[in-house]
Each structure stands twice: as structure tokens, then as C-alpha cells.
Computed example of a mutant assay.
Amino acid sequence: MNTQKLTIVIPAYNEEEILVNSVHRLIDIEDQIAAKEAQGLQGIRADILIVDDGSKDRTWELVEQLHEDNPRVKGIRFSRNFGHQSALIAGLTEAVKTANMLVTIDADLQDDPEKISEMVDLYAAGDDIVYGVRNNRDSDSWFKRTTAQGYYRTLHLLGVELVPNHADFRLMSKRAVETLLKYHERNLFIRGVIPKLGFKTGEVDYKRTPRMAGESKYPLKKMIAFAWDGITSLTIAPIRLILILGAFACLLAVAMVIYAVVLKVLGMSIHGWSSLMVSLWFMGGVQLISLGVIGEYIGKLTTEVKDRPRYTIETILE
């Protein structure tokens, strides 16, 4: 029998309306897990680590109060907003020092926290990574549901391993987290990298619920940027698509030259100013898009070469 420690990592940004209730609920769930003692695990210890991602409201004040009331609640405060993925990495980096099991979940608890108990059971049975997977998207709008499914299909076609309908609600073992943290790139798309780790995995299904209060921290603009980051950080397929498109355009140009020569030999006048201008605009657009995609990769490469820190920690409540 092994004594294990469970740490729940919560990235939080402007979550003053729901943070206290969420933490109290998670503490109750941890107590239930410790009392149940999952198969093969005895004396489970548990705590919570909140990463304040540069909130502008009273989130950090609430974290300090929660820590004062209950030492099991710990906190990390960023000097400014560095983003959700950086908050996750910071939390995992700190928590893995003492924890054997690490669960990441958003502060709004739209992902069902009651499933953490099942995750711990699967960990006890030998799974190093347990994904929380949504079994339906009824709570999403038609637009969000359609675009999400299209995104997963696109990544699959590009050769990216991704668990469909899984966000950042998961349990990872200590060795799985330590392996993840060896990936040092600045633009780390966590949910795309974890399937590459190669450890034994399991899944628990859950139904996502509406937020109790507050607004989503992922509006359409951020979702699009996040999706694009996922594509460009996991695959060079867009560059290859540009190459294919360029080759096709060259073949089309050769065909048009042959067509023009044939018409000239036959003595037929060549009309088509409109088609010529359309072609020029089309090729100009393709070139600008191509330069943009290539520039995106060069920009990411520049960021990696600079090797700047992912985040700056202002305060740690241990």
C-alpha cells in the first residue's frame, strides 16, 4: 500500500465570482476521495494550487483569504496575464515537487469535478494519464459545436494526435508531468503534446455544465488564436500545403501559356482583361497568405531562440 498525494491545479483569471465556491467544492471532493481510499492507495493527502494569471479583480485577495483559512489551499500569482497554458505549466511545475497525482481543472468547474474520484481509481489501476472527455456538446451553440468538430477533423487530417472533446481537465502521474515539463518550447500546446508522451492512458466521460457565474474567458477571438497556435505548434503541414498550392499554380500557369500560344498560332485574338486581373488578384492573395503562414513559423522560431521565460511569478503561497 502506498501513501499518495493529490494536488488539484486551478488556473484562474478574473474568477472572483465563483472561486470561493469552487474551492470549497473541490476540498469536499478531495476529502471524499481520501476517505474512500482508492484501490491500492492509503492515507491519500490532498491540496489545491490556484494559479492567478494576472487577474484584475479580487481573485488574488480571495486566494490569500482561502490560504489563511485553510493551509491546504496554496497559490501562485503571476506579475501579469501570461495565458491559460502558461498558468497550467506554472502550476504543474510547482505541484509536481510534492504530488504523485496532479489534476488540472478550470476554476468555473464546468468540467465535472465529481469525476476526479474516477480518475484517481484509474490512476490506482495503472493509468498515468486520465483524460476527462465530454460525452456531448448540448450546452454549446451550433456554431461552437460545429467549429469544434471541424477543428478536430482538421488536426486529424494534418496528422496531429488529439483526444476529441478533451480540453485541459485531466489527471497525470508524477512521472507523466515530469516528462511533459521536459518540453521546453515557449509555445507549448499542452493538449496536443500529452498524447505524445506515450504513457498508459484512460478516459472518463462527463457532461459539461453552464458556468455558475461570470463570463467565459475564451471568447471567439481567443478561441481562434488558440486553435491557430495548436496547429502551428504541432505540425508543419500548413507549410507543405503552401508548397502544394505553389506547385499547382505553376502547373496552371504553364497550361495558360500553352493555351495562349495555341490561340496565337491559330490567329485568334486573346481577350480576357477581367480574367487576367482576377488571376493577378488571386495569385497576389495566395502569396500574401503564404508569406503570412511562413512568417508565423519564423516568428515562433524567433521566440524559441530568444528563450525568454514563459511567465514571471510575483508571489507564491506555500
Rank of each mutant, 00 (worst) to 15 (best):
L158K: 02
M119D: 07
S141T: 15
Y123F: 14
P113I: 11
G126D: 06
D140C: 00
L109Q: 01
I129V: 15
R134D: 04
L157D: 14
D111E: 12
L157V: 08
I116L: 05
D121G: 10
D127Q: 11
H156Q: 12
N100V: 02
S139I: 15
V103R: 05
Y131K: 09
T154Q: 11
D128H: 15
D121T: 11
T104H: 01
I129N: 03
N135M: 15
S117F: 03
S117Q: 05
Q110D: 00
Q110T: 14
T104P: 01
L109W: 01
D106N: 13
I129E: 04
K144Q: 08
N136M: 10
D140N: 11
G150I: 08
D121C: 10
Y151N: 10
V103M: 12
S117E: 06
V163E: 14
Q110I: 09
K144M: 06
R153W: 04
V133K: 13
Y131E: 05
D106E: 15
Q110N: 05
R134M: 07
R145E: 03
A124M: 07
E114A: 13
D138M: 04
V133W: 05
Q149I: 11
V160Q: 05
D128N: 13
D106H: 14
V96C: 14
D108R: 03
K144S: 04
D106R: 04
G126W: 00
A125T: 05
K144H: 04
Q149G: 09
L157C: 12
N135V: 14
D127H: 09
Q149E: 15
K144W: 02
V163W: 03
Y123V: 00
R134F: 00
S141R: 07
S141D: 13
T104Q: 10
D140F: 10
A148C: 06
G150H: 12
L155S: 00
V160T: 06
G132C: 13
A124I: 05
K144E: 00
K144I: 10
S117G: 03
V120I: 14
I105A: 07
L162V: 11
T146V: 06
M119C: 08
T146K: 13
A95W: 02
S117H: 00
V130W: 02
E118G: 05
D108L: 08
I116G: 04
P113E: 08
I129G: 01
N136D: 15
T98K: 14
G126T: 06
D127T: 07
V133I: 15
Y151R: 09
D128T: 03
K97S: 12
N136V: 06
Q110H: 00
Y152R: 08
I105D: 05
N100Y: 09
T147V: 12
K97D: 09
S117R: 03
Q149T: 13
Y131D: 09
A125N: 13
I105M: 10
Y151A: 07
V163M: 14
N100P: 05
E118Y: 08
A99T: 12
Y151P: 01
R153F: 04
V96N: 08
Y123P: 03
I116V: 14
L158F: 14
N136T: 14
A99E: 07
I116H: 02
D108A: 14
L158H: 06
N136F: 07
Y152G: 02
G132L: 06
F143G: 05
A124N: 04
A125M: 11
T146D: 09
T154S: 10
Q149Y: 13
I105C: 11
I116F: 03
W142R: 13
L155Q: 12
